[in-house]
Design a protein around this nucleic acid. Sequence first.
DNA 1: CTGAAAGCGCTAACAA
DNA 2: TTGTTAGCGCTTTCAG
Lengths: 330, 330
Amino acid sequence: MRKNSNIEDVAKLAGVSISTVSRVVNKSSTVRASNRICVEQAVKKLKFKPNLIAKALVKGKSNTIALVMPRYEGIFYSYYALEIIRGIGTICESLKIDLLLHITHPNTNLNLSNVGGIIFAEVLSERKQLEEAVALNIPTVAINNLIKDLAVSCVTINNKQGAREAVDYLLDLGHRDIAYISGGNLTQAAKDRTQGYKLALAARKIPLRGEFMIEGDYSRKSARDAAEKLLSLKNKPTAIFVASDDMAQEAISVILEKGLRVPDDMSIVGFDDNPSSIYGAVPLTTIRQPLMVMAQTAVKELDLLMNGEGKISRICLPTKLIIRDSCLPR
Amino acid sequence: MRKNSNIEDVAKLAGVSISTVSRVVNKSSTVRASNRICVEQAVKKLKFKPNLIAKALVKGKSNTIALVMPRYEGIFYSYYALEIIRGIGTICESLKIDLLLHITHPNTNLNLSNVGGIIFAEVLSERKQLEEAVALNIPTVAINNLIKDLAVSCVTINNKQGAREAVDYLLDLGHRDIAYISGGNLTQAAKDRTQGYKLALAARKIPLRGEFMIEGDYSRKSARDAAEKLLSLKNKPTAIFVASDDMAQEAISVILEKGLRVPDDMSIVGFDDNPSSIYGAVPLTTIRQPLMVMAQTAVKELDLLMNGEGKISRICLPTKLIIRDSCLPR
DNA sequence: CTGAAAGCGCTAACAA
DNA sequence: TTGTTAGCGCTTTCAG
C-alpha cells in the first residue's frame, strides 16, 4: 500500500531535526547551507511531498477556496459559467490555491466550515448559504452581484450600465422600436440588464412595449423562440438587444433563415463579447464584460481577506461597447 | 474572530467524553439513547461541524477527489468539458465528495499527493501527471480514454464506433462523397472519431480524400471556416460528418446562409446529442454519447477504488445514433 | 456502553 | 542556527 514518506523520514535521512526540515521546505528562517543541501537531497531521494492536510490542521485554515455555482441549466451552459470556472480555476492554479467546486441546487447544504474562503458565482439562489458563510465568519466574496445588506466583498460587472450603453447606441442610431431578449430573472446580472434596457428607453421617453420584451434563459433554444416570436409580430422591431452573444447569434441565424438581412433589416447588439462573436455569420456588436478580470479580482480579494490583510470591498467593473457589423442606422 | 466549537466543547456540554461524541456524530457503535440525545442537543446548540481536515489527517485519506481538466481553448469551450464538470460536480455533491478542480496547462505540476483520488478528463496532454499518480499509488480513473499500458481504471465512450455508426448511416443512405470536420488531435476522443470515419469508408472501399477531411478544434469558428472551405470545393460533398453538434450547427448555419438547404442539398450528422441539437434551424441527426453516465461511472469507480473495494476496470460505454431531420438519402 | 490515551504529520514557540 | 515539545481536532484501540 501507499506509504508516503513524511517529514520525520526526511529528518532522519538528512541527520537533522524535523524543525529544520520544515524550515527548509517552507523557506522560513535561515538554515545553514550544508544542512539545507542535506535536507534537499533527502527530500528528493524520498520524493517527499508535505502533507497539506496536516499543515492545514495546524495552521487552522486551509489553502482551499470553494466556488459555489448553481446548476440551473440556463446559467450553467452560458459563456459566463464557463469563463468564470476557467478564470477562477486558472488564477487559483497560478496562486497555488486549491479550488473546490460546488455545483449546487437550492437545497444542497454544504459544509462550508472547512474552507479558507468562498466565492459565490451567483447569490440570488444561494442567499442562505451566503448568510451562513458570513455568520461563520468565513472570508467570502460574491461575484456579479452587488450586495449591500451583508458584510461581504463583491466584485461585479456593471450590467445595468452595460445594457444601457447597448440600447443607447441603438437609440443614437435612430432606432425606436427596440426589442429585448432577456436572460430571465434567475440571476442578478440578468435582472440588471433588463433594468438597463428599461432605463435607456425611459430616458428617451419611449414607452415600454410588452411584446418587445421576451424572456430568454441564455439557451440558444430560448433565443430562437424569442426571435421567431419577434419576427412574427405585426409591427416588428428594427433592432434587438440580446442579453448574451450566444443568444444573439442564434437570433441572427433565425433572421437570416427567414431571408432577412443583418444589419440591413435588423440591427442586433449582444452582451458578453464572447470570442465567437467575431466569427459568426455577421460580426457582432456587443458589450464587452471583463469576466477574467472579475475572476482574478475576486480571487485576489479573497486571498487578501484570507490573510487578514483585506477588508470588505465592493468593486464594480466597467463594460465597454464593442462596435462591429451587426448594426446600421435606422 | 471565528472560533468554531470543537468536539471537546460538545463533550463538555453533553457531559460525556469526546469518544462518545465521535461515536454519535459518526453513527458508529451503539451509544446509550440518553447519551445520544444529550450529544445531539449539544451539537445543535453549539452548531458543531466536525473538522474534516482533522478527520482526513487521522484517517490518512481525504474525501476529496481532483478533476484534472486541460485548458486548451478548444476542449474547454466544448459541450464535453461543461457536461463533464457539471456531471462530476453533481455526482460528487450527492455523494458528499469534495471536488477539487484543476484547470491545467501542460506544464503545471500539481501536488496530487493529498487527494483521495483523481479523475483525468483527458490524458493525451496529462500523461506525465497520470504516470505520477499511478506511481504514487493514488486511486485514479481516466475518462474518455482507453489506457492499456498503465494500471488505471478508465471509463470511456466508444468514440471510434460512434463515428463509424454516423458515417455508416450516411453510407447506407447512399452518400459516397462524405466530408468530415474533425475535432483536431489534441484529445484521444477526437482522434478516435477520425479513426471511425476512416474505418467506415475503408470498409466500403471508398478512398479517402484529403480535401474532404478538415481539421476543426470544437470551436464554432473552426467549423465555420471548415464548412466554407468544403462549400467552395469544385466537387462538393453531399454529406458532412461533424465531430461535435456545436460545430455541426455552425456548419448548418453556413450552408443555410449560402442559400443551400439542409438536408436537401447537404446531409449533416453531428456528435454529442447536445440538447440544443434538437432546437436549431434543423433538428440534428447525431450520435448520442452518455456523458453523464460516464461521469457518474467514473466517480463511482473511483469511490470504490478509494475504499479499497474496487479493482482496475476498463469500461467502454456505447453510443447511439439519434436520427432527426438533417439527413436525406442521396 | 464508555472513557483514557496514543497518535495522524506538521508548525511554532521556546530553549539551547 | 538548531532541536524539543506542545498542540491542531479527530479517530480508534484498549481497558474498564
